[in-house]
Design a protein around this nucleic acid. Structure first.
Lengths: 219, 219
DNA sequence: CGAAAAATTGATGGGCGTCAAGTCAAGTGG
DNA sequence: CCACTTGACTTGACGCCCATCAATTTTTCG
């Protein structure tokens, strides 16, 4: 990647015309521009027209929805190498934001008519499987099991190494797992005290006894 | 529908060769056979090869998974008129069972190669949307809100009438909402006491004040 | 009708949310 | 370098919601 290739997204923090101002179009015939989204910036918002697909180059993205009273549920994280942005209708139902400094390639979506153009089905199925797995976690697991399942999921999606990077805050993790930030923190501490994990840094987890984690989620 | 058209599924309650004994093939060139599944009978099991798609003619189906310690999470219900059975891999990850006396048309699936043959994408997207909506419920709603959301979902999927049929037990509802049967029952009672719903029968709910239900789910 | 299953209702306890205080890391300016 | 600020995270105390256990009522079906 070159510096010249980078471009910042339009600043939309004060944009009151959401949905009316699309991202710049992909230069025809070129590799999609790599755009840099600083931590916390929005990639698309609820209600915006679906125009693009997105590929995470580095960093991570959270897809979430807010309810009237401010509760937030994160439906999915998208990590480096993953693609997202497919929606069943013409407008986005959710928000997408960078959880940390994130590089994203934006591809203009083909019109919904020619499905064959893009390989949409695998994308939809991946999302479906992840959502289903997540339903099992949210429906029937306690807080410790949820955090264990989350760590294993992150590990699996990063190649199954025993050192896992967590490119998101505790708050993001909490809103993904349907917990509070305090409960997530307590669960991390409990796993640490049990000697199951080590925190090399705030956002880097080492699996000391991976099998214990697997046992906890008890598929 | 004629009586002659009906056929009972093979009794597999003692079948130890799961995955080896497919359902009878669809008669070539004919309308798929309508099979009758009594309440509680299985349509396919986890680990079984995916061979078919299923269309619910009447009744309802629950798709669920069991964890090691016996906890059950129902991922989806499929009501009359709906299609299900699409999986991202070659084997089923879940169980499918009739929640009540259910009639189902079984269509042999096209080989996974020619996706275009079936209209798979809409099916996958419908499943994805439902799973995502359900994630919001399981992640951030309390028991009363979950039951309210469930009733609204059932209503919507039955045409939006104010009289809703619930073709499943309280136990099924509980395992769908990530609650216990007692909590579901208490929530029904509370909604009844508040004058929001009426129970014309055990499995038939009348919306007295639909707006109150909508307010509770507070998208 | 009578038995079994399903659903409701009640009492109690635990897990997690809430509120609050404390700790830690990173950045800023003197 | 160090005092100070700021934000993220951790830890503690307490209360509420829902799971659990138990008893009763209602429904279903032989």
């Amino acid at each position: 990647m070159t510096i010249a290739e980078l471009s910042l997204p339009p600043n939309r923090s004060d944009d009151r015309h959401r949905g009316a101002d699309p991202h710049p179009a992909t230069p025809a015939g070129n590799l999609p521009t790599l755009m840099l989204f600083p931590a916390g910036t929005e990639i698309y918002v609820q209600g915006e027209k679906c125009r693009n697909f997105y590929q995470v180059e580095f960093g991570a993205v959270r897809v979430h929805r807010l309810s009237a009273d401010g509760r937030r549920q994160i439906l999915a994280f998208h990590l480096a190498g993953e693609t997202f942005g497919l929606e069943p209708s013409q407008t986005h139902h959710f928000f997408a934001e960078a959880t940390c400094a994130t590089g994203i390639r934006v591809r203009r979506a083909a019109p919904m008519q020619d499905h064959a153009a893009e390989d949409l089905l695998p994308m939809a199925l991946t999302g479906l499987v992840r959502a289903q797995e997540h339903l099992l976690v949210l429906g029937r697991q306690n807080s410790l099991e949820r955090v264990a399942a989350f760590l294993l999921e992150m590990s699996e999606r990063q190649g199954g190494l025993s050192e896992v990077e967590l490119p998101m805050s505790r708050m993001d993790i909490a809103d993904y797992l349907g917990l509070t930030i305090e409960t997530v923190s307590r669960s991390f501490s409990k796993l640490r005290q049990k000697g199951i994990i080590r925190l090399s840094s705030m956002r880097s987890v080492e699996f000391v006894r991976p099998q214990s984690l697997c046992d906890m989620v008890a598929g």
